[in-house]
Simulated assay, not measured.
Amino acid sequence: MLGFLRIVFILLGALPLPLLHGFGFFVGTLLSLFPNSLRRTTLLQLQRCMPELNERERYRLARLSLINSAKVICEAPAIWFGPRWRLRRWLRAAETQMQMQALIAGGKGLILLSPHIGAWELAGLFCADTGAITSLYKPQKGAMDLLIHEGRCRNGATLVPTSTTGVKSLLQALRNSEMVGILPDHDPPLHSGDFAPLFGMPAHTTTLVSKLASRGDVPVYFIYTERLSWGRGFRHHLSAAPAGIGDSEQGLIALNLGVEQVIRHLPEQYWWGYKRYRRQPPGAPNFYDPA
């Protein structure tokens, strides 16, 4: 099964990016037109997170978000298993890489936060192309886990599980003045997070970033990859996290503020279909309850 899937991914990865993105456009458009859970979640979260939008603007943004979410899946084989020469072209961003290398040269390591926005699979390979990086990874089930792991390690990244052992590996990487990668917009496991405002509403947020940043004043930056239209490629963005992210009291607020700033930069490329608010403070109503 693994061998067959790998061949399929290699064949799909060889297809032109405009064709893959075109198929993603088709699938995402269908998702935006017919009732389904992704569409419902996307519209609900946009309504509550961006109340300044009118109904027409909200539906347009939902459609674009669903299209970009479909493109994430369609472009993954090309990023993980496509021609190396084409990948090199997509990773070309000398100025951003020089900035990251200068931060690493400070000797404290570098924490990179990559939300689920744009081509987040390519963002991981871009970081690994810049230098040694250890990233947290939630293992999947079955043969797909091996393919995802192989693809994400394509440029030499080290993936560690979301466990105590994985956190220890992140600490060791920082001691070695290397980079560590974390997804900051996932709902963390119980007892691994606390509530902090995101778009003005309580979101269960990981405490790991603040704890790591507080050790030796480690620099924290957001890294995300914008998907250009018509299959023209990608653009990488690097921005400093808000001040206070390593503070024990204000760190979670600063973290979510940074996530919100990134999302507002490219709202149409964010994964609004993910139930970010599924865990709520004790006594609070179900965020996704239609009532």
Score class of each variant (00 low, 15 high):
residue 120 W to R: 08
residue 94 A to G: 12
residue 47 Q to S: 14
residue 77 P to A: 05
residue 60 R to A: 13
residue 125 L to R: 01
residue 88 R to N: 12
residue 67 I to D: 06
residue 104 I to D: 04
residue 60 R to K: 06
residue 63 R to M: 07
residue 151 G to T: 06
residue 78 A to R: 06
residue 94 A to K: 05
residue 131 G to T: 06
residue 103 L to C: 05
residue 150 E to R: 14
residue 118 G to T: 02
residue 118 G to D: 01
residue 155 N to M: 14
residue 151 G to L: 10
residue 152 R to D: 03
residue 67 I to Y: 01
residue 150 E to K: 11
residue 65 S to Y: 03
residue 133 I to V: 15
residue 45 Q to L: 13
residue 144 M to A: 09
residue 148 I to P: 12
residue 125 L to F: 06
residue 82 G to N: 02
residue 156 G to S: 12
residue 67 I to V: 14
residue 110 L to Y: 00
residue 89 R to Q: 14
residue 86 R to W: 11
residue 51 P to W: 01
residue 50 M to V: 11
residue 127 C to I: 13
residue 61 L to I: 02
residue 89 R to H: 12
residue 100 M to I: 04
residue 111 I to Q: 08
residue 102 A to T: 03
residue 149 H to S: 13
residue 58 R to I: 10
residue 146 L to T: 05
residue 99 Q to T: 10
residue 128 A to Y: 01
residue 144 M to T: 05
residue 111 I to T: 07
residue 117 I to Y: 00
residue 83 P to F: 08
residue 83 P to K: 02
residue 57 E to D: 13
residue 86 R to Q: 11
residue 72 V to T: 10
residue 112 L to Y: 07
residue 55 E to Y: 08
residue 123 A to I: 08
residue 97 Q to A: 05
residue 120 W to E: 05
residue 50 M to A: 06
residue 57 E to F: 04
residue 67 I to K: 05
residue 60 R to L: 12
residue 138 K to D: 09
residue 117 I to P: 07
residue 148 I to T: 13
residue 153 C to W: 01
residue 149 H to C: 12
residue 43 L to P: 12
residue 159 L to S: 11
residue 87 L to A: 03
residue 66 L to W: 00
residue 106 G to S: 05
residue 50 M to E: 00
residue 74 C to E: 00
residue 108 K to H: 14
residue 50 M to I: 03
residue 83 P to I: 15
residue 53 L to T: 13
residue 104 I to G: 11
residue 122 L to K: 12
residue 154 R to N: 10
residue 51 P to A: 06
residue 44 L to W: 15
residue 114 S to K: 01
residue 67 I to N: 05
residue 76 A to V: 08
residue 64 L to Y: 05
residue 131 G to H: 05
residue 51 P to F: 02
residue 73 I to A: 13
residue 44 L to P: 15
residue 90 W to K: 06
residue 102 A to M: 03
residue 128 A to C: 11
residue 43 L to C: 11
residue 139 P to Q: 00
residue 52 E to P: 15
residue 134 T to K: 10
residue 112 L to C: 10
residue 90 W to Q: 07
residue 52 E to N: 12
residue 142 G to Y: 10
residue 125 L to V: 09
residue 123 A to Q: 04
residue 100 M to A: 03
residue 144 M to G: 09
residue 82 G to Q: 03
residue 139 P to K: 00
residue 82 G to V: 08
residue 144 M to I: 11
residue 56 R to F: 02
residue 121 E to C: 15
residue 135 S to M: 11
residue 108 K to A: 10
